[in-house]
Computed example of a mutant assay.
Amino acid sequence: MKRHPYDGLPRYANWRRALVGVPPADVDPVVSFPFKLSATDRIATAGSCFAQHIARHLRRRGYNYFCTEAAHPMLSAEQAQQYNYGTFSARYGNLYTARQLLQLFQRAHGQFSPADEAWQEADGTWLDPLRPQIQPGGFASLRELQADRRAHLAAVRKLFAELDVFIFTLGLTETWRARSDGTVYPVCPGVSGGVFSAEQHEFHNYTHEEVVADMLAFIDALRSVNPRARVILTVSPVPLMATAEDRHVLVSTTLSKAVLRVACDSIIKAREEVAYFPSYEIITGAYTRGSYYADDLRSVTEPGVAHVMKLFLKHATDRPAQQAPVPAQNPAPAQSDAHLARSAHLVEVNCDETALDDGTD
């Protein structure tokens, strides 16, 4: 007979039995998942840099990765990647915050039109303030930028209307926005284009309550155009590149990720057909002893990504037999540097936030 609620706990509920002495690759913090993805489901992704890994593995495993903004057939695969086609389900670049996602939906459906329409650079080219790195070298004219934006937002409308599952990786709470109308930028103006102005731009660090409100507003808006849509939330394990708060970047990272993780818990309790997948916990858990990060302490190594995707395929899809194997934790010494470089590249290749690091010490 039980003497108290902690008698007879399942293994997963006890730290020692669930983690101590268990090989890192065998740790599985997913107890249950509310629904299964099928091979025919149209699966879309958006979010921070880490979300790119999910798209890459789903495509590799033969799932129906849904893209509505494809590159022109004349572009090579390398050129398409350079111009950010296929990185996410549409060419929106990194969506680090819940407010960015909500504003994307509103812009696509004619509910919000940012006053900061375009940036003209010193060389005469034009940049989209909400996608400053989407077009290498910028657009040749304002008309070209506007035409590309119209096509992009049409692709976003199609995406939201026709997807079956939307996977969103929340990355940050810190952001910069326009003082005039609250438009949220993916990176501070002046970093990857445009000109920073303290009179026009302001820093904001989103609270738990704001993140929850924005995500619930987005989910309700998504369901208004696509009632069957299911949503999977994750939190990026990639630390902040830099913080605009007057404190250590480690402290800001911890706060930001904590806010996002708690927000996810509130969101899944408030809406049905919304699930949380613990990518963040799998990568950052103490049981890994840091082995899932490269030497820069930010980039997630391929063994870490493989561990996440192995468990995602096992619990969230109907084809667990095709789960991805986890590569060896310690590559041969001769291959180690190249392995870490490749792993870092996979995360950083299309990451707006990396522009915040000027490389100085």
Rank of each mutant, 00 (worst) to 15 (best):
P227Y: 05
F218G: 02
I232T: 00
V225T: 06
L216A: 08
S236Q: 12
T234E: 03
V225Q: 05
I232Q: 02
V225A: 11
V231G: 09
D220C: 08
T253M: 00
V231D: 04
S252D: 04
V231W: 01
T253Y: 14
S236A: 04
S236F: 05
P237R: 11
A217Y: 04
A229I: 12
R230L: 13
P237I: 06
V251R: 09
S252T: 11
S224H: 09
N226V: 04
M241A: 14
P227A: 08
A242C: 04
V238E: 09
V249Q: 11
M241I: 15
T234I: 06
P227C: 13
M241H: 05
P237F: 06
A217M: 01
V225E: 06
A229Q: 02
V249M: 12
M215K: 11
R223C: 03
I219E: 03
L240A: 04
N226C: 01
L233N: 03
V231E: 10
V235P: 00
D220T: 02
V251E: 11
D246Q: 10
M241L: 14
V231H: 01
L255R: 14
T253C: 08
P239T: 09
D246V: 13
T234D: 00
A221L: 09
N226M: 04
L216Q: 13
D220N: 10
V231L: 14
A221R: 03
A242W: 11
R230Y: 13
R228E: 14
D220A: 07
F218E: 02
L250I: 12
L233R: 10
T253F: 12
V238L: 00
R228P: 02
I232G: 04
R228K: 15
E245H: 06
P239C: 09
L216P: 08
I232L: 14
S224F: 01
V225D: 08
V231M: 07
R223E: 14
V251W: 05
D246A: 10
P237T: 01
T234P: 00
T234S: 12
V235N: 00
T234H: 00
V251G: 05
L255G: 13
S252I: 02
T243L: 08
V225Y: 01
L255E: 15
A229K: 14
T254S: 12
R228C: 15
M241Y: 15
E245A: 09
V235L: 00
I232K: 02
D246T: 08
A242M: 12
V231R: 02
V249H: 14
A217I: 02
L255N: 15
V249E: 13
T243G: 03
L240R: 10
S252G: 13
L250W: 15
R223V: 03
V238T: 10
I232M: 08
L222G: 03
I219G: 05
P239Q: 11
L255A: 08
T243M: 09
R223Q: 10
T253A: 11
A221N: 00
M215A: 11
R247E: 14
